[in-house]
Design a protein around this nucleic acid. Structure first.
Lengths: 333, 333
DNA sequence: GTGAAAGCGCTAACAA
DNA sequence: TTGTTAGCGCTTTCAC
């Protein structure tokens, strides 16, 4: 910075003012300094900024890059943070790198707040961290527990899937669950409630799963073995939906002619043309924006009551759903 | 740090020595200071460290989190950096956030080196950045151009795929390319060379593609329309291989009975049980380790000649390949 | 083995 | 509108 200052023939303070768009410099001076800085390839030293500023403006974002849905949220986090004058510091969680390590690193960067994307931990863990930083959970969050939360409305998502199927004429709608995977419990609950609301509670059928294609295949075999009368399956996840469809195909059951399938997450997978799966989509960009706003609110009002922001999902209708054909069971067709 | 020092009844310098495992303190003192620091929840301020140290020890890693293969490399980068005493700073590239922006941020963090994962740019771009930082390219790198490179041996990978197929008895092996996608040009070249080496150069057949499932489906239609006599397809990518297989299935062509297919990348997709695709796998962990070693070498020897490290791929045989059945073309079977 | 002191590059409060 | 100045929290050299 000293180089820029002397090259431009001004003080370092003025360079600082110009570089961070702070008020207190004439337009002509701004241009002059900026041109000089550009010519010298100057870029402010983030470390020095963070060290000196009262607030670091850093927001740590913890996520698992293996999960595409979390990646989408993180991608949307950058513009959202920009808009609020924050800087995103990424903390990747991997098999070799546990959470505490990642949090420690973000604390080292003096993050003012932490955004936890789709991360489940015992309540005690959140309490412990919350003592040191503002904390916002986002994404597939099971339940708010005193900590700020931004989540999709799982109830509405499941509802939308069920409604789409009933409008097509389905009544016997099975549910392929996700065990203790993020969001799964909420979705299962919403399924039961939804079926009750539609007056078809006696057709409730829950298949165990875990968001993998293997569990989808297993569910398919279970449906076939039980000569299920289900005409549609609502899956808690796209991968399990695809596994189900693939296994059914091996046994000659066609989707959507013989069975309709709705996935969940509207992932890249669902959009692939050869899959083309009707799926309940969450809105990663909206989740990211709301998360950053929650961070801002929490920083401004440390003592405010817990936030619970809910983002609307939307159903993407593709070609894995159709009206049911007239017959009694999958194997008697 | 001052808190820890006074709580432990020592000087701040001593705390510093203990916290960064530097020589110059007794074992008993180390324990004492560490316990005190732990009790106070102390974590060194990274900004202050970077600011004060002559070398930041930061290594910027630029990648696209949308590409699972790049994510795997990045994940392996953490332990590799640890081992060499470096700190990873992640720079995510997204649709909304261009490369220059990301590089700028990493420069702001005073990274000593940049690792570019699977990123293609004009040579001029590399030259420009290389003036400011050490630069290492890793992953699907088309060709070394004076800049340090760590890459998979595409030639050997393609060779392994071809050899596997010829050992099964295939001769008419088509290639589904990847256009200008990373690594695709190398793979196409290796395919032609490999076919020549196997003495079946007159059976060379290259289908255009772009690493999507759509291009795989298009290739399948092309094979069928041309009444291709190919008994096997080597794809430059897993997604295109899967698209090909799915489209073939729609036309009653079974894999591997009617046609064998080898993918490339050994991605999560290939490993899914319902896909179970034979695929040429790259070794992300080895790439990451070599990349960090290249960084270290470049930092230690700024004037050394360009590095070109090559990592061996390996073929994962699954159930999409088998011996060819006796017939002339896909549609005459 | 330990402590005192200087200063990394920047920001913010204030003085000119 | 511009310049001066005092640290932010740490590492490092040097004296003890």
């Amino acid at each position: 910075m000293a180089d820029v200052a002397s090259a431009a023939g001004v003080s370092r303070a003025l360079v600082s003012i110009v570089m961070r768009d702070a008020p207190g410099a004439s337009a002509a001076m701004r241009d002059h300094v900026r041109v000089t800085a550009e010519a010298l390839g100057y870029r402010a030293n983030t470390a020095a900024q963070v060290l000196r500023r009262a607030r670091s403006r850093n927001v740590g974002v913890l996520f698992s890059p293996r999960f595409p849905f979390e990646v989408e949220i993180v991608e949307a986090m950058y513009p959202a943070a920009d808009a609020l004058g924050h800087q995103v510091v990424l903390g990747a969680m991997t098999a070799q790198r546990d959470l505490d390590r990642a949090v420690d690193e973000l604390i080292g960067h003096r993050c003012e707040a932490l955004v936890l994307v789709g991360l489940d931990r015992p309540d005690a863990w959140f309490e412990q961290v919350r003592g040191r930083l503002a904390l916002v959970r986002v994404g597939r969050v099971p339940s708010p527990a005193g900590v700020d939360v931004v989540r999709s409305d799982e109830r509405r998502g499941v509802q939308a899937g069920l409604q789409h199927l009933t409008e097509l004429g389905h009544r016997r709608i099975a549910f392929l669950g996700g065990g203790d995977m993020p969001g799964a419990a909420e979705r299962a609950k919403a399924y039961r409630a939804g079926m009750r609301r539609l007056g078809v509670a006696d057709h409730v059928c829950v298949l165990a799963g875990d968001y993998t294609d293997e569990c989808g295949a297993a569910a398919a075999r279970e449906l076939l073995a039980n000569r299920s009368e289900a005409t549609a399956v609502l899956a808690a996840n796209d991968w399990s939906a695809v596994g189900l469809i693939a296994e059914l195909a091996r046994h000659g059951v066609r989707v959507p002619q013989d069975l309709s399938v709705v996935g969940y997450d509207d992932s890249d997978l669902a959009r692939r043309t050869y899959v083309d799966l009707t799926s309940v989509g969450q809105d990663p960009a909206a989740l990211a924006v709301q998360a950053m706003e929650a961070v801002r609110h929490r920083l401004d009002h440390p003592e405010a009551p817990p936030i619970d922001a809910v983002v609307e999902p939307r159903l993407e209708v593709r070609s894995s759903t159709a009206s049911p054909r007239r017959r009694r069971s999958l194997t008697s067709g």
